[in-house]
């Protein structure tokens, strides 16, 4: 009876004969692979098409006129080059500053949340930290604009920077706190036991162990800042443009090949950043690993 059981199951199961071949692998569902491939095509097709057409020699975006780098040249030296350069400088400097500030704030918050023990208002504090992700971007944009105008703050570089710091905090916070949760508290205790003050325990033990999390938090915050259009568009005021607002302004008049070249450049920057962040996260999943 015992020996016969599996045979019986296979031959007289719900679908006789259907599953006799090979092992019944409960992880395999027919059709899931094609859907996954479809998913990847949908995700990548638009990007690849734009990348390809950015190398199009023809000024028309519909006709393929052979390979050329002329639109890249146009981005750097063409009529709009100055505008793009200013926008790129604004974007990068705002991203660098906002990512730095939000990473410092998020690191401090992560130590307080993860290492602060149980305290009243912990969930409220967590909710506050995640608020910038929860509130729809357009609402954040409106609220920030109203706030700045109500307190009479002139819109411009500074207002963009402040807004970016706020919405970058949760993105920096998540990888940093995840990393910190994986570090046993006993290392700080060992440092304290060996005569380290709090500051020294942080500087010599906790900070180096948290470093991979802090780095990926910084990189994510940087990308998120570079990515933002809606909030920037509301609080930028007149005259200050970032790359996304400049591109948005340009595509309102139709997609031109130089915009595709610019997009491809930005895309490449994002991909490099994410890859680095991914590799860093992977190499440092375990403290000491």
């Amino acid at each position: 009876m015992v020996g016969a059981a599996p045979v019986r199951h296979k031959s007289t199961g719900a679908h006789p004969g259907a599953e006799v071949t090979a092992g019944h692998d409960v992880r395999r569902y027919p059709g899931f692979l094609p859907v996954t491939i479809l998913c990847l095509i949908v995700l990548y097709a638009p990007l690849i098409v734009v990348m390809v057409y950015s190398f199009n020699d023809s000024p028309s975006i519909t006709i393929w006129g052979g390979f050329s780098l002329r639109w890249y040249e146009d981005v750097f030296f063409g009529l709009e080059a100055g505008k793009f350069k200013d926008a790129a400088w604004n974007s990068l400097s705002i991203a660098a500053m906002a990512a730095t500030a939000s990473t410092v704030i998020a690191t401090s918050a992560a130590v307080g949340m993860v290492r602060g023990g149980a305290f009243r208002g912990k969930s409220a504090s967590f909710a506050l930290l995640s608020l910038p992700i929860m509130v729809p971007e357009i609402v954040t944009a409106v609220a920030t604009l109203i706030f700045f105008s109500a307190i009479g703050f002139t819109l411009g570089f500074a207002s963009i920077l402040v807004a970016h710091v706020v919405f970058c905090i949760p993105f920096a916070y998540l990888p940093i706190s995840a990393r910190l949760q994986g570090i046993e508290g006993v290392y700080e205790e060992a440092a304290r036991d060996l005569y380290a003050s709090r500051a020294e325990a942080f500087r010599h033990v906790l900070l180096p162990l948290m470093a991979p999390g802090i780095l990926s938090g910084f990189l994510l915050a940087f990308i998120i800042s570079l990515d933002d259009f809606i909030i920037t568009n509301f609080v930028k005021g007149a005259g200050v443009e970032t790359l996304p607002t400049a591109i948005f302004g340009a595509v309102k008049q139709g997609i031109k090949p130089n915009i595709m070249a610019l997009s491809t450049l930005m895309l490449a920057v994002s991909v490099v950043f994410v890859t680095v962040s991914w590799l860093v996260g992977r190499s440092g999943t375990k403290p000491g690993g």
Partner: peptide, 20 residues
């Protein structure tokens, strides 16, 4: 007195050697 002011040292159960 905080731990860093006590002339006492600990050998931790899982050693807690600083991995870095």
């Amino acid at each position: 007195l905080p731990p860093n002011r006590r002339p006492v040292n600990t050998v931790f159960q899982q050693y807690a050697l600083f991995p870095h």
